[in-house]
């Protein structure tokens, strides 16, 4: 018996354009003004299996009346204005071409005491869903899928995270309140999406499942790529960079 890819149903090929093409390492094509580009260029993508911590599936759901917005319209808006729905202080620098398969976006996140710089790649995008995947050094290894679907008379809007903390430091941070902070982030985001479509008081339901309780201790070395450590070093070096730049200008 052989793998006969030509005999497959047509369905198998219909989504080819929705998936990102193979990349060995990420490349940021253009850095938007104001964005900090750290911890993305040259990094490999990480699936939930490459991370360190326990594996979690977190699902955040909000229901909107379907006469208010159809799933495809909602996803089109969400893809177009993705960063606008984020809680204040966090920045999603969308690629110039928008959320399209294979595109890389920069993230500058507000975390206690610092600004953390990382990114994501658009792994998958169609009319009813899109998925972002994280690179090495991101807070978590995994992906997050945003979707909308019609159920009875409602448009059900969902964000589903499948992740492990990337390294022991992020795992500790998750245990020490990071999970709650992350939940709040996505609850607020979905609330903002609901508000955009006229339902500011919509309730966001959260379901958290621990898919794998084991920590992968062999992955502790992921800490080498930690965006938190590297962002902190970058911030600490800011005065030196400033002084160098001044000297350079004075010299010129």
């Amino acid at each position: 018996m052989t793998n006969s890819s030509n005999d497959k149903p047509a369905a198998a090929g219909r989504d080819e354009a929705n998936w990102a093409k193979m990349v060995s390492r990420l490349k940021v094509s253009q850095v938007p003004e104001g964005a900090m580009n750290l911890n993305v260029d040259g990094r490999q993508l990480t699936s939930p299996i490459q991370g360190f911590g326990k594996m979690w599936q977190k699902t955040y759901v909000v229901r909107l009346p379907s006469e208010r917005v159809a799933p495809t319209e909602l996803i089109a808006t969400w893809r177009k204005d993705f960063g606008d729905f984020w809680p204040p202080g966090n920045h999603f620098y969308a690629p110039l071409t928008g959320i399209e398969p294979g595109e890389v976006a920069l993230l500058n996140m507000k975390v206690p005491g610092m600004k953390l710089s990382t990114g994501v790649m658009v792994l998958y995008a169609d009319e009813e869903s899109f998925t972002l995947m994280t690179p090495q050094g991101h807070m978590f290894a995994g992906w997050i899928t945003f979707s909308a679907a019609q159920q009875d008379d409602a448009t059900v809007v969902q964000a589903q995270v499948l992740m492990r903390a990337s390294d022991p430091i992020f795992e500790l941070a998750l245990v020490m309140g990071g999970h709650r902070q992350e939940d709040q982030f996505w609850i607020q985001t979905l609330g903002n999406v609901a508000a955009h479509f006229g339902h500011p008081d919509a309730t966001v339901d959260t379901k958290v499942v621990c898919v794998d309780r084991k920590r992968q201790w062999s992955r502790w070395r992921n800490v080498w790529h930690s965006s938190a450590i590297r962002s902190a070093i970058y911030m600490a070096e800011a005065p030196i960079r400033g002084a160098r730049s001044l000297t350079h200008r004075t010299g010129a």
């Binding site: 599936q57 869903s129 899928t145």
Partner: peptide, 11 residues
């Protein structure tokens, strides 16, 4: 004999 796989299927 599988067909279309989306990102949720991969998950």
């Amino acid at each position: 004999n599988s067909g279309y796989i989306n990102s949720t299927g991969i998950a």
